[in-house]
């Protein structure tokens, strides 16, 4: 009778465990963290990985060993030993996994609580998601808005996320944190940036045909540089119409769908804004009225070759001064771009 040898089995397990460990260590699995929360998530990740490598090693070793040792010769029609069970073993493989998953749950719950703690004096940022653009505004800085998320180094940030249309999800891989934006709800997310750099902001909840391009950047800056940027933006919005209009244009993500030479925008999801005068003629309206209507109520006239309901209908909510600046800017830029 062929019996299993525990020594051989342990050797198999060491080999399988070694292979799995190599697989865990060699490729760079996690992005280099740029936030304290990501560092804690990484800890949970490696804690779970150690446990999983051990379990995988045991299972893989038993399977490989069985294939090697217990394969029946082709003409062998005998049966194996009639073992129906073993209470001790069954208790063991119920109890040990239970203990392991409870440990994982406790570690996870602690990290979750820490990662959700905004502290007493966070920087507040309002995040607005819409198909297919991000917009960030800083209530502590005169509601300055931006199409990039700019954050100062080392300060806790509390994001308040809203959506104007469907569900989106805010994710920066280097921050590790992710949160859906839900129409009708305000959701929250805490980030503590701890590394200067530019990182991708990715929408991870399928939100329609532009989902794959609903991207922007998160820029972590030294605190002084952040203050300087805030001041500069504030001046631009209060400045001459053209400058303010361009700021509104970029901050609201118009450039992520449209082409407009003056703004350096080259996206092709929506109509080319440099050709607006011709479009206005096609629609039979004066240019300025046409531009305003197309921003506030995009379905009133849809350019030939483009589907309805793609352009967000939410820009009607822009403050009047910003809307006026935007219309002026788009009208004058498209005239000069002809």
């Amino acid at each position: 009778m062929r019996r299993g040898s525990v020594v051989q089995l342990v050797l198999f397990a060491l080999v399988a465990g070694g292979a799995a460990t190599a697989l865990a260590l060699v490729p760079g699995w996690l992005p280099t963290p740029a936030g304290r929360e990501a560092g804690r998530i990484d800890f949970v990740f490696w804690f779970v990985t150690v446990i999983c490598v051990a379990i995988f090693a045991v299972v893989a070793a038993v399977i490989a060993y069985s294939i090697w040792k217990f394969r029946a010769p082709p003409d062998d029609e005998s049966d194996g030993p009639p073992i129906h069970g073993h209470t001790g073993l069954e208790i063991t493989w119920t109890a040990i996994p239970t203990a392991l998953v409870v440990a994982i749950a406790i570690v996870s719950a602690i990290v979750l609580a820490k990662n959700g703690d905004a502290g007493s004096n966070p920087l507040h940022v309002d995040v607005t998601a819409q198909q297919f653009a991000w917009s960030f505004s800083y209530p502590g800085h005169a509601n300055l808005t931006s199409g990039d998320l700019r954050l100062p180094l080392g300060r806790k940030v509390e994001l308040k996320l809203r959506s104007l249309d469907v569900i989106h999800s805010f994710w920066v891989p280097e921050f590790g944190q992710k949160q859906d934006t839900v129409p009708g709800l305000t959701t929250k997310l805490v980030i503590t940036p701890d590394r200067v750099g530019t990182y991708p902001v990715i929408c991870t909840e399928l939100c329609g045909l532009g989902h794959a391009v609903m991207r922007t950047s998160a820029i972590v800056m030294p605190a002084a540089a952040f203050e300087a940027w805030v001041n500069k933006q504030g001046k631009a919005l209060a400045g001459p119409a053209g400058q303010a209009g361009k700021t509104v244009f970029v901050n609201n993500g118009c450039n992520s769908c449209h082409t407009l030479k003056a703004a350096g925008a080259t996206a092709k999801i929506g109509p080319d804004l440099d050709k607006l005068p011709a479009e206005a003629k096609g629609a039979g309206k004066p240019l300025e009225a046409f531009v305003r209507e197309s921003i506030v109520n995009p379905n009133a006239y849809v350019a030939p070759g483009f589907p309805k309901n793609v352009m967000p209908q939410t820009f009607s909510q822009l403050p009047k001064s910003q809307l006026d600046a935007l219309v002026q800017y788009v009208v004058s830029s498209s005239r000069s771009g002809r």
Partner: peptide, 17 residues
């Protein structure tokens, strides 16, 4: 085992979707 990663909330927050 990858389900364990996804079950642990902090990791899930990073890798979901």
């Amino acid at each position: 085992l990858s389900g364990i990663y996804l079950g642990a909330v902090p990791i899930d927050i990073h890798v979901s979707d």
